[in-house]
């Protein structure tokens, strides 16, 4: 079982987007860490956050609410947060909790990046 990790993968200076990759299991036990890290990332001057969930193998409702909390922190810091590359299990609970009616998800990082406005 892979423990939960979140790592910064790339920065898009033009669009002011930080791309972070989540891996492992995001559940009640790891949601506090996830929330703190997401909050930290929004506080580090990154205007927008893009989460690459391709290696996130499992998420539960506490994990999903950590993502919502991350989105809230990003918006309140004047930015945004988007999600890309959901694996089937994550996509399934996403739909089960109706979060798919709230958040737009992208099949890959490039498509998600393109959805952020260019900084010009």
């Amino acid at each position: 079982m892979i423990p939960f990790r979140i790592e910064v993968e790339a920065q898009d200076e033009d669009r002011k987007v930080t791309v972070a990759r989540m891996a492992g299991r995001l559940n009640a036990a790891s949601s506090s860490e996830a929330k703190a890290r997401l909050k930290g990332l929004t506080g580090e001057g990154a205007k927008h956050l893009l989460l690459d969930l391709s290696e996130l193998s499992f998420i539960d409702s506490s994990g999903l609410s950590a993502l919502v909390a991350g989105y809230k922190a990003a918006v309140e810091a004047g930015g945004s947060l988007k999600l890309a590359c959901l694996v089937p299990q994550v996509r399934e609970v996403f739909a089960l909790t109706h979060l798919d009616r709230v958040f737009e998800t992208y099949p890959d990082v490039a498509a998600a990046l393109a959805s952020f406005p260019s900084g010009s």
Binding site: A28, D60, S61, S62, L64, S65, V68, L96, T97, H98, L99, R101, V102
Partner: peptide, 18 residues
């Protein structure tokens, strides 16, 4: 059960946001 509470919390969140 925490999972149950959080799950209905998410459902209500989606409703409230809309």
């Amino acid at each position: 059960r925490r999972e149950a509470l959080m799950q209905v919390g998410l459902l209500s969140y989606a409703e409230a946001a809309e």
